[in-house]
């Protein structure tokens, strides 16, 4: 199983001063898989994401993606290799309209990779197509500040997907949303997965994680304490202890 894993995290650690944020994490994600990653606040989920995406560099161990080592690569280089993420708090480009927000990753990744999107017409069409996918086509010319929370999350996902990634990491894409909005985002992530994109979902909303994930991994205090089928993992005594206390 490990030989053809898309993402292979091998014994990575990260500390901030005296605080150990990640402590020897091992994790594999298969191509096309939907992995849920859960854990209490401060358990190291976001640090792990940052180490995978290159925002932070892991101190020990290695991250392999699609057969290549990612260690030491800058975040934009990892985006070029096919790792995309959405941010926990949406970080749109404030001075650009939605169309241009998506134009950036297209120009800098897809265009740089294969070059056929040279004409502005092609680019515009692709941007619109992406906006349509997330249901924001009608607001193409509007600015990010005109969007609601859920629309902002959709823009964030659309921008991540614009880079045509192999792996999408959705970092709490649903936090603070209503039930129907959560369903919207879930459907969107499912659709992306059906297109062949591997998805790691980091989420606190258990109903969403349980319905989405094929596998569930749990982080507690920088260590992975469980990894397996969702229904088994949530019954794991150690996981229950971490969430409910003893």
């Amino acid at each position: 199983m490990t030989a053809n894993a898309l993402l292979h995290i091998d014994n990575i650690s990260k500390r901030f001063g005296g605080f150990v944020a990640l402590d020897g994490i091992e994790l594999q994600v298969m191509p096309g898989e939907r992995l849920g990653l859960i854990g209490p606040n401060g358990s190291g989920k976001s640090t792990l994401v940052n180490c995978i995406c290159g925002t932070l560099q892991n101190e020990t161990g290695s991250v392999r993606f699609d057969g290549h080592k990612l260690d030491g690569l800058a975040a934009h280089q990892r985006t070029h290799r096919g790792v995309a993420r959405s941010f926990q708090l949406p970080r749109p480009f404030h001075s650009m309209n939605l169309l241009d927000n998506l134009r950036v990753p297209l120009l800098y990744t897809v265009h740089a990779r294969m070059g056929p999107l040279r004409s502005t017409g092609d680019l515009d069409a692709r941007c619109l197509e992406l906006l349509e996918m997330v249901g924001l086509a009608a607001k193409a010319k509007q600015m990010p500040r005109d969007l609601t929370q859920v629309e902002m999350r959709k823009l964030e996902l659309a921008r991540a997907v614009a880079a045509e990634p192999k792996l999408l990491i959705a970092d709490e894409a649903m936090a603070g949303l209503s039930h129907s909005e959560i369903d919207d985002i879930l459907k969107l992530l499912m659709r992306l997965n059906e297109r062949g994109i591997t998805v790691i979902m980091i989420e606190h909303i258990m109903s969403a994680v349980m319905s989405f994930s094929q596998r569930l991994a749990v982080l507690v205090s920088g260590k992975k304490v469980a990894d397996g089928l969702p229904q088994d993992v949530v019954r794991d005594p150690e996981v229950v202890r971490a969430y409910l206390g003893q």
């Binding site: 925002t55 480009f93 134009r103 950036v104 740089a112």
Partner: peptide, 25 residues
């Protein structure tokens, strides 16, 4: 040009720029 978009992403949000594949440095 493409460079202009790159410049604007740096003004707006460097972390998001990196995540979008812009070599900010």
């Amino acid at each position: 040009a493409q460079l202009g978009f790159g410049f604007a992403t740096i003004r707006d949000d460097e972390m998001a720029a990196e995540a979008s594949g812009v070599p900010t440095l």
